[in-house]
Design a protein around this nucleic acid. Sequence first.
DNA 1: TAAGATTGAGTATTCAATCTTG
DNA 2: CAAGATTGAATACTCAATCTTA
Lengths: 170, 170
Amino acid sequence: VPASPCPDDEQIVGWWGLLVEGFAATSRLLADDIARSGLPATWFEVLLRLRRTPGHRLSASHLAAEVSFSSGGFTKLTDRIVTAGLVERHPCQDDRRVTWIGLTPQGLALIDAATRNHARQLREHVLGVLGTDGFAALADASRALRDHARTLDGAEPADGRRVDGPAPVG
Amino acid sequence: VPASPCPDDEQIVGWWGLLVEGFAATSRLLADDIARSGLPATWFEVLLRLRRTPGHRLSASHLAAEVSFSSGGFTKLTDRIVTAGLVERHPCQDDRRVTWIGLTPQGLALIDAATRNHARQLREHVLGVLGTDGFAALADASRALRDHARTLDGAEPADGRRVDGPAPVG
DNA sequence: TAAGATTGAGTATTCAATCTTG
DNA sequence: CAAGATTGAATACTCAATCTTA
């Protein structure tokens, strides 16, 4: 796509639409494969982050934020993964409000295997399509978007300025 | 990110992780803003596609596929949007199994306003971060990923062999 | 007061089964 | 029998309120 100097609204909205569709389609492909090894996509996201953390443990609130879950939703998600025997809760000694979530040996074994398979899928369905440079550029752009959005998160006041349009439906 | 000739598993998985996080963070930013104008994100996706279709109408099953919904889930989503007066169901004359979903005047007015605001948000939170060339490149890569994934969808056997039918084209 | 975690209520989604039409 | 649409059961999430601790 040769870049226009000044893309119009339709162009911009269309570009973002491609992102939504591309990400959804690829995510589904990957999630289906992960599910085949016995892991819901949400569990995979949790275990993946524990796996790459020294000590294989993170605080519940930190982990919840990383996987974009609400506090309450993450409690229930954790309940299910604990029941499955893949993670354990550990009360924190220094600050008794926090709960550490740590991988069990079974959890570690499962996420190790799932990660190897995941990487294989990514080579096939992403790296194979975009090439190394393309995938790296995509990752770089995504990091920039993430950092920008997270900077604004919580700093964006619910100010009075509204869309110039019809009142909310309801 | 200078591209390594042969990225390892951790690298690849990390790159995809950035995509997941960047997309989630930005999507949430955009969805929050859309919600402020009175539209749930799912409604917006539906109305957006009707808006850019000649005649502002699509069949339910086609629309469901475009927004990545199950058949049953889309029926209920449609129920809610119909109740809000933004779309209407029209039985198809040629094939009485299909239902057309069409925008109402209110729906059109609302999605028009929401789209203008959406474009403004995209300029701020995506175009402003990546630049025109960066955004265009991202859209291009996303299109490639989408087309690849959709080619494989339905052609990828679940566990055993594919059910009888025409051989996959790709 | 504020922050981390949990609970309960409400909502939205998928899956499987059903109905209708081609 | 296949395809589109709908329904009911089950699941998973968010939000608001609560409890505990800093």
